[in-house]
Computed example of a mutant assay.
Amino acid sequence: MKTLIIGLLTVVSMNYSFAQENKTNTVVPGYTKAEQEVIQLSKDKWQWMADKNVDRLTALFNDKSVFVHMGGSWGKEQEVNVIKSSSIWYKKADIHEVSINIIDHTAILLNKITLLAEVGGNEVTNPFIVTEVYIRQKGKWTLGSLSFTKQLGPQ
């Protein structure tokens, strides 16, 4: 009997953990399939940044991509190096609102987020509106631009 209960609890907890893993892969009503694909890609990007998964990010970032931060702007190579070296560690992005517009082969996504990051060894939390521009080439979305705009005042 004990073995049966332990077995059932194991199965239930495994199902729960799988459900949690797939939580972000939900269908968002009112968005097209392409819009949902880009929204999911953006969510994945935040996780890859938190995990410092530079291989996935290198593949996602367009070779001509630009990144605009509070302290400056730069291209793909420097952004990958910033993440790899932990100069900026994007620990967690809490996404509060998402909007997206697709124009031909370009997707413009706005995320209203609270970003927990470590910058120069100091942990900081900032409210941002992040503009992400994705370009669809050869059937694949790549990130062309990522810009952080700090929100001022009450959120």
Rank of each mutant, 00 (worst) to 15 (best):
W141T: 01
V11P: 00
L60H: 03
G144E: 05
K52G: 05
K84S: 13
Q151G: 04
I39S: 01
F61N: 01
L57C: 03
S42T: 13
M14D: 02
V98D: 12
N15T: 14
K2S: 07
D51W: 00
I135H: 08
N122C: 01
D55G: 01
G75W: 07
G139D: 15
T106R: 03
Q137D: 15
S85N: 15
T125Y: 05
N111F: 08
E79R: 02
K23T: 11
A107M: 10
K45H: 08
D104W: 00
A107H: 07
A59Q: 10
S87P: 00
T24Y: 12
A107G: 08
V54Q: 03
N126E: 05
V124I: 14
S65W: 05
W89T: 11
Q155L: 15
I83V: 15
G139K: 09
V27Y: 13
I108L: 15
V98A: 12
W46N: 05
R136L: 11
M70A: 13
L143I: 03
A19S: 14
L152G: 09
N122K: 14
A59C: 00
S42Q: 13
Q36G: 14
L152T: 12
N22R: 14
W48R: 06
G144V: 02
W48C: 05
N126Q: 04
N126A: 04
K23R: 11
V54F: 04
K52D: 03
N53R: 08
T106W: 02
I100F: 08
D94L: 11
K112L: 11
E123H: 05
K138M: 08
K52P: 00
G75H: 05
G139T: 06
K23S: 14
H96I: 14
P154F: 08
Q151A: 13
V133T: 14
L146Q: 07
F67I: 05
E35A: 01
K33S: 14
T142G: 02
T10K: 00
W141G: 03
T10M: 07
S13M: 11
H105N: 15
K140A: 10
V119R: 00
V68Q: 04
I108H: 11
L9K: 04
I100A: 09
M70V: 11
A50C: 05
L146G: 04
G144N: 03
S147P: 00
N126L: 03
K33Y: 09
P127A: 14
K76W: 01
T106N: 09
I108T: 13
S147L: 06
S145I: 01
Q47F: 06
E123M: 06
D44E: 13
N126H: 03
Y90L: 10
T131L: 10
I6E: 09
V133S: 05
G121R: 09
S42P: 02
I103L: 13
G153L: 07
W46L: 08
K138H: 12
K43R: 14
I103A: 06
